[in-house]
Nucleic acid binder design. Structure first.
Length: 465
RNA sequence: UCCUCAUUAGCUCAGUUGGUUAGAGCACCUGACUGUUAAUCAGGGGGUCCUAGGUUCAAGUCCUAGAUGAGGAGCCA
């Protein structure tokens, strides 16, 4: 069988050109049949749907047929014909069968029955072969592509911010250290401290927790940029919404105020969800059927309704008047807890909410200070079930205000001198936000654990595969 | 990291107030069936009851510690 003759299953199912001789290759999902005939459900990952291969057993050696079990890999050459059976429009009447790789049914872990997500996480090297992960990974790809398309079409420049950074001022959480020093024999200074000047970069280095600060440098030249890359947080977070290694999209725009920032965030999210609805129909329908009957409805609702925009102060008032009993008290100045956010999104407004103008004490140093002296122009986009999907702000562009805040917080100027330079030379009003890619995927796929929307999740105590 | 719950066959789970030889469905193997759709039907094999201690005449079941997993919380995207 000639490999280059292969046609993808998706194309075969869509072609409807019955009568032509075709070659298909893929992994066997099930084989049924009797003494005379075998029905093989074949999948190559190009679509969630399988193509049915029909083989007359008499035409093939018993050894070959015996090897065609769930999980094995085969090639088939045959006639694409209209299927007499119900359940599929076309099927392949096999003329040649080639067994590329067997999968011993006694030891192959995947069965044709459904498996728990927990079990599949333990065999993450094989789970892409399941319907669920095939669907999730195709949707993940579609969303990554749509993100680039959206920004490209809008004239944004894709900026590659560094993954290794020596700046510890991002303040977004604990970092993973990057070093080439021998950890069993660390060089010491005369005071007995570790001598980082002997390390690879001549100073302490870590994996990035955010590309934002460098993103701002790009925006101060290219006007509109975005980053899309891996991000690392060494927090000991054990939840269905956190990963130690995740992907983040961070647009940063000169000449955008907080309102333009919100407009972009809302338009962006709606574009992505609409893109999924239009381009991942089969996969979404599968997920809707198998996991979450309200998934499609929820996606359509978000696309068709405007997000609620609300100031932090108003949110606190609503929560105080709600009569709800919360575990954590609500008062002006308190950081909103999950239960508060969930009440606003899922009970009060029943739609996505954008909260703005938070107290400056609970937000990062770089956020634009309001004239009231108390709040900053932060914005959090809150989604049902997911919580915070986007965090962003207008940035403080006035040098003196920014440096005052840095000093208040005790951030060493020498670490961020290059960041401060943007405010010194040709500063501009600007804004940006960060979208957690896997959190977006949680929402779009209806999966409930973030470890199930990334191929190989990294979490505390888990770095397998 | 804290709180709660769980861990029994390859997978998903049942297992009564502690009491004989630990069960089911699916998967797997064998056989039957001329077109099946998570095929069906009959039969068969398969167990470190998470680990280590302890209580007891007797522990899958009770107690202690640990490991692993899940949910909630915190941190955040």
């Amino acid at each position: 069988m000639v490999l280059t003759e292969r046609v993808k299953v998706k194309a075969l199912l869509e072609s409807g050109q019955a009568g032509s001789l075709v070659v298909a290759m893929g992994w066997v999902r099930t084989r049924r049949g009797n003494k005379n005939v075998s029905f093989i459900a074949l999948n190559d990952g190009s679509t969630i749907n399988n193509i049915q291969v029909v083989a007359d057993n008499a035409n093939y050696p018993e050894e070959l047929l015996k090897g065609i079990t769930t999980g094995s890999c085969i090639g088939v050459k045959g006639l694409l014909v209209e299927s007499p059976g119900s359940g599929q429009r076309v099927e392949i009447q096999a003329q040649e069968l080639e067994l590329f790789g067997t999968a011993d049914p006694e030891t192959y872990p995947l069965q044709k029955k459904g498996h728990s997500m927990e079990f599949l996480r333990e065999i993450a090297h094989l789970r892409p072969r399941t319907n669920t992960f095939g669907a999730v990974l195709r949707i993940r790809h579609a969303m990554a592509f749509a993100i680039h398309k959206y920004f490209n079409d809008k004239g944004f420049t894709y900026l590659h911010t560094p993954i290794i950074t020596a700046s510890d001022a991002e303040g977004a959480g604990a970092m993973f250290r990057v070093t080439t020093l021998d950890v069993n024999n660390l060089p010491r200074t005369e005071e007995g401290k570790i001598n980082w000047s002997e390390d690879f970069f001549g100073k302490e280095a870590n994996l990035t927790v955010s590309g934002q600060l460098e993103g701002e440098l790009g925006a101060m030249a290219l006007s509109e940029i975005y980053t899309f890359g891996p991000t690392f947080r060494a927090e000991n977070s054990n939840t269905p919404r956190h990963l130690a290694e995740f992907w983040m999209i961070e647009p940063e725009m000169a000449f955008y105020d907080i309102v333009a920032n919100m407009d972009l965030a809302e338009d962006f999210l709606k574009y992505l969800i609409r893109y999924a609805l239009e381009n991942c129909k089969d996969d979404l329908e599968f997920l809707n059927k198998m996991y979450d009957n309200e998934l499609l409805e929820r996606l359509l609702f978000v696309v068709n309704n405007s997000f609620e925009r609300l100031e932090y102060t108003k949110a606190v008032e609503i929560l105080e008047k709600s009569g709800q009993k919360f575990e954590f008290p609500v008062f002006w100045g308190a950081d909103l807890q999950s239960e508060h956010e969930r009440y606003l999104v899922e009970k009060h407004f029943k739609k996505p909410v954008i909260l703005t103008n938070y107290p400056k004490e609970i937000k990062a140093f770089y956020m634009k200070q309001n004239d009231d002296g108390k709040t900053v122009r932060a914005m959090d986009v809150l989604f049902p079930k997911i919580g915070e999907i986007i965090g962003g702000s207008q940035r403080e562009e006035i040098y003196q205000k920014l440096i005052n805040r840095i000093n208040e917080l005790g951030i060493p100027e020498k670490d961020v001198w290059w960041y401060l330079d943007t405010r010194k030379f040709g500063t501009a009003p600007h804004s940006g936000f960060g979208l957690g890619f896997e959190r977006l995927l949680l929402f779009v796929t209806g999966m409930t654990n973030i470890r199930d929307v990334i191929p190989f999740p990294r979490t505390p105590n888990n770095c397998e595969f």
